[in-house]
């Protein structure tokens, strides 16, 4: 069952991310980004990482993409003033280089040759929570400082007058 679901959701993720990169209007990109993030969350479920899948949907699809859509609608660039983009010169080279990067990644992944093993309890709420609050407690607390800094930074940057 897992291979079929992997292929389905993997294809959705790859297709969605290609659409994100190729759409002209950022709002279409943002909606395809939601699709991609949901597909990736499904892949997390396939790997028994249920906690991370839930976080993926709540934080990414629920908060980050909504923030993107908010900003797109806030600055509301008219269709006529969107940057005109053509696939020429250096940017065409960039696509080729990215293709080579994917090929290289594929070769490395093949070299890995990891055989499948039954997944231990590595992604449940209990396992991740236990690790976060024991071994990685300091990192977890520093994360909150990072988020606080991001909140203050975002307000300070986006506000007209502080």
């Amino acid at each position: 069952m897992e291979p079929i679901l992997f292929i389905v959701f993997g294809a959705i993720a790859v297709g969605g991310s290609i659409m994100v990169v190729t759409r002209r209007h950022p709002l279409a990109s943002a909606l395809y980004l939601i699709l991609t993030l949901f597909a990736v969350a499904a892949l997390f479920v396939l790997r028994q990482a249920h906690f991370l899948a839930a976080i993926q949907v709540i934080v990414y699809a629920g908060a980050v993409v909504v923030l993107f859509i908010f900003v797109i609608m806030l600055i509301n660039v008219p269709e006529s003033r969107l940057p005109v983009e053509r696939l020429t010169g250096v940017r065409f080279l960039a696509v080729i280089v990215a293709g080579l990067l994917i090929l290289e990644g594929a070769l490395v992944a093949r070299r890995f040759g990891l055989a499948g093993t039954p997944a231990a309890d590595s992604g449940s709420v209990e396992a991740v929570g236990r690790a976060l609050f024991t071994d990685y407690l300091l990192a977890f607390e520093v994360t909150s400082v990072l988020l606080l800094a991001a909140v203050i930074g975002a307000i300070a940057l986006a506000k007209k007058k502080i």
Binding site: I102, A109, G113
Partner: peptide, 15 residues
Amino acid sequence: EPSAYLLLSGILFGI
């Protein structure tokens, strides 16, 4: 096997 996931990860990263 996880190499399929690594391949998918590489493709997404390239995109």
